[in-house]
Design a protein around this nucleic acid. Structure first.
Length: 110
DNA sequence: ACCGTGACTGACG
DNA sequence: ACGTCAGCCACGG
């Protein structure tokens, strides 16, 4: 409504916050859910600002290949991987194993 | 108001 | 099969 500063970002946070534990999704899936299929990059940009939101599990958001592309932005080089492994997701070589099995599509699930 | 940047994705060679 | 190129949207300066 009124002056929804970066309303797009807020919607991204809302979706990421809805990701169930032990599940992961891709930027493109969120972007598509928001109506901006080509705005996948923008979703990642939003995650960059999500660092201020403790309720936004950014570690559950990876690229469409299941690679922890944003691990460098997470504050550490292994924090994101450990966080995922802590939820039961196996990560190897910065890539999520059985990604398709852990994949959570907001358009389909939401 | 314009330009540059970025945690992406899909297509081409 | 792998590597490279271009396109896309939104925010910040």
């Amino acid at each position: 409504m009124t002056a929804p500063e970066s309303d797009f970002f807020q919607r991204v946070y809302a979706v990421v916050r809805t990701i169930p534990t032990g599940r992961v999704t891709s930027y493109g899936a969120i972007a598509r859910y928001l109506g901006s299929a080509g705005g996948a990059r923008t979703v990642g940009y939003a995650m960059n600002a999500a660092h201020s939101l403790p309720d936004v599990p950014a570690h559950r958001v990876v690229n469409r290949l299941g690679i922890l592309t944003g691990k460098h932005h997470f504050g550490g080089f292994t924090a994101m991987q450990q966080q995922l492994e802590a939820e039961g997701i196996r990560v190897e070589d910065d890539q999520i194993q059985d990604f398709a099995r852990h994949f959570w599509d907001p358009v389909t699930e939401l």
